[in-house]
Simulated assay, not measured.
Amino acid sequence: MKIRLYNIVVMTENMEKHNRSLLMIMYRNAVCLISCCVFGSQSDDGKTSVRDRFNARQFMSWLQDVDDKFDKLKTCLLMRQQHEAAALNAVQRLEWQLKLQELDLATYKSTSIFEIPEFYIPLVEVNDDFDLTPI
Rank of each mutant, 00 (worst) to 15 (best):
Q101F: 03
L123H: 06
Q58V: 07
V91C: 04
R28H: 09
M26C: 06
C32D: 04
A86C: 10
V10D: 09
L22I: 05
F70W: 01
T111V: 13
D68G: 10
A87M: 10
S61L: 12
K2M: 04
T133G: 10
A85P: 02
I113K: 04
S110Q: 09
L123E: 12
L23Q: 05
W62H: 07
L63C: 11
E13F: 04
L77T: 02
E102D: 15
W96Y: 13
A56V: 08
R80D: 10
V126P: 03
Q82N: 12
M79P: 00
M15G: 03
L78V: 11
Q97S: 09
T75I: 05
D44T: 14
K2G: 00
N14H: 05
P122E: 04
I34P: 00
S43W: 03
L103T: 07
N7G: 10
G40N: 10
Q82I: 02
S112H: 08
N7V: 01
L33E: 15
T107P: 01
A56C: 14
R93S: 03
K17C: 03
K99P: 00
E102I: 05
T12K: 14
P122I: 03
H83R: 13
C36T: 06
Q42I: 10
R80L: 03
Q42A: 10
F70A: 02
E16I: 13
R53Q: 09
L22N: 06
D67L: 07
M79K: 14
K69F: 05
D71G: 02
M79H: 12
L105A: 15
S21D: 11
A106L: 13
N55Y: 05
Y120H: 10
L5E: 15
V124Y: 01
Y108E: 04
K2W: 03
V91Q: 13
Q97T: 01
V91A: 13
I135M: 11
R93E: 03
N14Q: 12
S41G: 07
L94K: 11
R4I: 05
T133S: 15
S49I: 04
T75K: 11
A86L: 12
F119A: 08
L5M: 12
D128L: 09
V9H: 14
F130R: 03
I3W: 00
K74E: 01
V91S: 07
C76L: 13
C76F: 00
L22H: 04
E16Q: 12
N127F: 02
I3Y: 05
D65W: 06
D104S: 09
F119T: 12
